[in-house]
Nucleic acid binder design. Structure first.
Lengths: 133, 133
DNA sequence: TATAAATTAGAGTAAAATAGTCCTAATTAG
DNA sequence: CTAATTAGGACTATTTTACTCTAATTTATA
């Protein structure tokens, strides 16, 4: 799987947050979406760190969108949620054990790079607004 | 990750097999590629079952290509190697616990379907010949 | 026909990634 | 002050990935 539940929960939560007029708390969101609160809270924290959401602490706090939906790429959401860019195949991680030696010299490397670029481009061009309209 | 080592090993092995004039054994391939023999053997068995390779048992046996490289899609190789089609996000697996109920009614479903289709199409159009030329 | 070289099949295992939980601290509206 | 809320870190459970091992089967060839 390219995307994990973190991305799924992030996108579902963002759709609710962008349609709300007040800050949405993690607990409220977890109830509306029927997903685990602590896990969702972690994901929302990640989105806040990346500047996709603004978090308001304390009573009546919660999360609000900082930018317009049309200015938030799906790529940035996924990277914030997953903690890394979604990779077709994680060569670098295995570089020391790579059968073909260093990265880039492998016979399938051109294919992998082309594929990865296709995915990156697709996610970078798509915005939060696009996927919900 | 969308693709696992099974697909990587399958593609690397197929590149050697298609350039050989005799059946290539799992052991020989595992040596040339510096990858575990038993694991590679399992993957080659899968490719043989899907009709991508023909396996010859016994002495001087091994694996040979059945079709031309240009007639073998990367999609078919990946499906044979992974045992399933590479999924962007595995909704069906979570259908019983899906926050939004049944598949397709989820707000991110259209995005997921579009994304998955893009990937499927890309892999179906690409052939073994394409990625090594 | 014996034998060595292969694939086949299935069960089992180890490591890594995913999907969480839990607890304590810090912040803030009212 | 206090109740509501985010922040952070450590921890755990589950699932997937990446293998291994053993025994059975097949087959070229001597």
């Amino acid at each position: 799987m390219l995307l994990t539940r973190a991305s799924e929960y992030a996108l579902l939560a963002l759709d609710i947050i962008r349609n709300a007029d007040k800050p949405k708390g993690a607990e409220q969101l977890s109830i509306e979406l029927s997903i685990p609160k602590s896990f969702l809270a972690k994901i929302l924290q990640g989105l806040a760190k990346e500047g996709i959401l603004e978090s308001k602490k304390g009573a009546h706090g919660g999360f609000v969108l900082v930018k317009k939906s049309s200015e938030i790429s799906i790529a940035s959401i996924v990277i914030a949620a997953e903690g890394k860019t979604p990779a077709v195949f994680d060569c670098s991680q295995y570089s020391t054990t790579c059968p073909n030696g260093s990265i880039g010299s492998c016979t399938i490397s051109p294919f992998l790079v082309t594929f990865q670029t296709k995915i990156d481009t697709f996610l970078q061009k798509l915005t939060l607004e696009d996927i919900f309209k």
